[in-house]
Design a protein around this nucleic acid. Structure first.
Lengths: 326, 326
DNA sequence: TTGTATGCGTTATCAG
DNA sequence: CTGATAACGCATACAA
């Protein structure tokens, strides 16, 4: 096609396309011209078949419609596309079985590598996948050949949030937890406890209520707290969505935020800054985390050792938390 | 591989894999067994090369991290995956040039079809793309061969929202518009005007302020309204994000929602039900719209005429709007 | 530096 | 009903 238009062989075209070997400048020009004239675009399927690579990397996200994973996906896309790699997004819905199926789909498509955003797969399963193709996982800390893990410091994040409230004078701080079998959530709880301990505030189990990372569970958590007559002046929710639900529950009970109750969330979603009142939160740089995951994958694909390092958590103080009156 | 394991030819394996022809039951069993034993999964790249199809459909979304498009993507994924098709998501960021580049990427990958979610491409450009491969577009109404358009009734939606406020006794209703070169936004404005007219309420240009579909622009719009000393008792924002920003602006000015100002949004994002106060909005069933787009694509790919029809808008009344006090 | 031959894994077109 | 055989579009080893 292009080859005969430029009067050379297909191999030569391939060579200029990939820079595999030096070619005569004249022929190169002729080929480039022919490519432009014919609007030729190499067929990735054929390249994949011949070269063993598909120029696509699979991304197992948990929800396509999550502000958090959405930002991460954006970071991944922006890192990958300019390098000629296409991300293939599939969503696991926080379910190990679904995730495994997702990975099967990706493997069936012969993706060059897989990026897993958190999820419920076991570390073992992940390591196992890594023997077949490079794997980058966000939200774990494990080591294995062809496997790179990027983990955000949820412990420190939990600690920062709690310390912030303590510094504002709060001592009765409720904690709305995330799923118990979710490592991130447990780390945040650990941070909460550590901050309490450092301030010599006794841990009160009654102040910890379970949640499920969505708004409704935050709302219900506050209801439960109130129903059990717990006394508290502040709430730390393990993510922003639950914090928002908690704020609504407070409003329904005529508890003013922050006058009566201070609330701190986690994630610092873009929308949190427009919550009423704007939410104090621990920033988790989703876009950057996504971008770094992709960069790490790029390294892995180039047979290099990834060195990407995750930025630390940062507290963003807004209007939902204030000094305890008193 | 599988072929020789089962003692048959590759063609026969292909036949049972695709159901292309009837195969002897015994051989079929032997092949199935071999497939299971070897954990064989056909290579889509090779299938694509040989058969001219890639079993993937490109999806041009506008933002990977948007609650609205996220839900649509979820609908698309769930309709496509079970049929063995993989969606390939790329994001155009509301920019015609970027979108065109996205489509190039998709075409380079030889996707079997393209689904475009709204966007800024011209109808002409879209029709043009449709000569190469099937196209489904959400948010337009145009007709062309191999092109199916699904459009949501934004006019009626705008009308419903405004009528709701009128029925509550409001007559001074501000409108926070979307981008002027955005057809959806203009339709909503038309609906607003139509409702006003039907109720014999004179249209006041001073009550219409531009916005850009994000929270901040909603906030600024209210500031501007207040700065120009407009009198109004209600606000209809062309989307929920701006409505949330508007609510925050009101709160900052000590205008209570809904006691002093009623607010109605558009889209009914999942989070809107947890806004403070929970937001009255016009439901736009993003998940369903996505699913229907995918179903239409399936029809197109099967050389059938799509018949998918979009559900109409529906007003969801919550606490951000109430009867005007007398 | 370049062309030729071969193979990647699968489907389609033939004969049989 | 089934098996050869060619073809899909490209990359690579090899030969020149």
């Amino acid at each position: 096609m292009v080859a005969q238009a430029a009067g050379v062989s297909a191999s030569t075209v391939s060579r200029v396309l990939n820079g595999t070997a030096v070619v005569n400048e004249e022929k190169k020009q002729a080929i480039d011209a022919a490519i432009a004239r014919l609007g030729f675009v190499p067929n990735p399927a054929a390249r994949g078949l011949a070269g063993g690579r598909t120029f696509s990397v699979g991304v197992v996200t948990q929800a396509l419609d999550s502000p958090f994973y959405g930002a991460a996906m954006r970071g991944i896309e922006e890192a990958l596309l300019p390098r000629g790699l296409s991300p293939l997004f599939v969503s696991g819905h926080w379910n190990a079985v679904t995730e495994a199926r997702c990975i099967s789909v990706l493997q069936a498509r012969r993706v060059d590598g897989i990026i897993v955003l958190t999820g419920r797969l076991t570390d073992e399963a992940l390591k196992n996948y890594a023997v077949t193709q490079p794997v980058v996982v966000l939200g774990r800390s494990l080591k294995a050949p062809h496997l790179y893990a990027l983990s955000f410091d949820n412990f420190l994040g939990g600690r920062l949030a709690t310390e912030h409230l303590i510094q504002l004078g709060h001592r009765r701080i409720a904690f709305i937890a995330g799923d118990a079998d979710h490592p991130d959530a447990n780390e945040r709880l650990r941070g909460y406890r550590a901050a309490l301990e450092a301030a010599s505030i006794p841990f009160d189990e009654g102040l910890v209520v379970p949640g499920e990372y969505h708004e409704l569970s935050g709302l219900l958590a506050v209801d439960r707290l109130l129903a059990t007559h717990q006394r508290f002046t502040a709430i730390f929710a393990a993510n922003d969505q639950m914090a928002v639900g908690a704020a609504l529950a407070c409003q329904r009970r005529s508890l003013r935020v922050p006058e009566d109750i201070s609330i701190v969330g986690f994630d610092d979603l873009p929308t949190s800054q427009y919550a009423i009142p704007p939410l104090t939160s621990v920033e988790q740089p989703a876009y950057e985390l996504g971008r770094l995951s992709a960069m790490a994958m790029l390294q892995l694909l180039a047979d290099a050792e990834p060195t990407e390092v995750v930025p630390g958590p940062r507290l963003v103080a807004r209007e939902s938390s204030r000094r305890l009156k008193g």
